[in-house]
């Protein structure tokens, strides 16, 4: 069974946010209004987190793209009272909207703030409705949602390779953010396959995981830029 993981090379990332928009179009993520944004209710499954260090004239601004890290020991699933969020056999942390009761324990439990609560019903202008992705549901008000590693793409990829009578390869299944990344800073693949690009990358001396000390064992691995070893703050 493959174990899906992502590697993000911070040395290549330019902070352009193409991944953010790609994710929104792929996953029917409603855009917020200015008022909601002001209240911090913008939903962004993958978010660019800026990290400002130093003072003028030598400031260093870094960007950290943060999807759901799909932890192997996800703190969010431990607190869910209704089993709406769980870790599936391929290591993906699933979120079942029809089960979710919106208690937001998981949003609080996630140390990476990767989970988002729908404070209001998603609204699109009527004109925008045709471009919603039929492979992804529209989440109702009152449920928690998060990055799925574009899990629906995996379903379709599995189906495709089965129809073609072959094994699933890394390039068959790529989340929208990885596919679009202009700088090629994101890699995706099977962490259990020793030959996959991601596995190779995790062996890099630059590799690190966010808040490793919490023991969450995230499956999103970052590569530092230069000698930087990321302290995470928001």
């Amino acid at each position: 069974m493959p174990k899906w993981g992502m590697v993000i090379d911070l040395d290549k990332c330019t902070g352009c946010q193409a991944c953010v928009v790609a994710c929104k179009t792929e996953n029917n993520i409603p855009f917020s209004t200015p008022e909601q944004a002001e209240m911090g209710r913008t939903i962004s499954w993958i978010e660019i987190i800026p990290i400002m260090e130093g003072e003028y004239p030598r400031p260093k601004l870094r960007y950290l793209p943060r999807p759901c890290l799909q932890c192997d020991h996800p703190p969010c699933i431990k607190v869910c009272p209704v089993y709406a969020t769980y870790r599936n056999p391929e290591g993906l942390v699933g979120q079942v909207y029809s089960r979710c009761i919106g208690c937001r324990y998981c949003t609080a439990a996630c140390p990476y703030t990767a989970k988002y609560f729908n404070w209001s019903a998603p609204t699109w202008a009527k004109e925008f409705e045709p471009c919603l992705n039929p492979d992804v549901s529209k989440r109702p008000k009152g449920v928690v949602e998060k990055c799925t590693f574009c899990h629906h793409r995996l379903q379709k990829a599995k189906e495709k390779v089965k129809a073609e009578g072959r094994e699933l390869k890394d390039e068959d299944y790529v989340p929208a953010c990885v596919q679009t990344c202009p700088a090629g800073a994101m890699y995706f693949g099977d962490l259990d396959n020793p030959n996959s690009k991601v596995t190779q990358q995790t062996k890099s001396p630059r590799a690190f995981r966010l808040l490793e000390e919490l023991g969450t064992e995230p499956k999103v691995i970052y590569l530092t830029e230069g000698e930087w070893h990321g302290a995470y703050r928001k």
């Binding site: 079942v96 492979d135 549901s137 899990h151 379903q155």
Partner: peptide, 8 residues
Amino acid sequence: VDCVACHK
């Protein structure tokens, strides 16, 4: 029978 295999 994995939830996310059928629930999108």
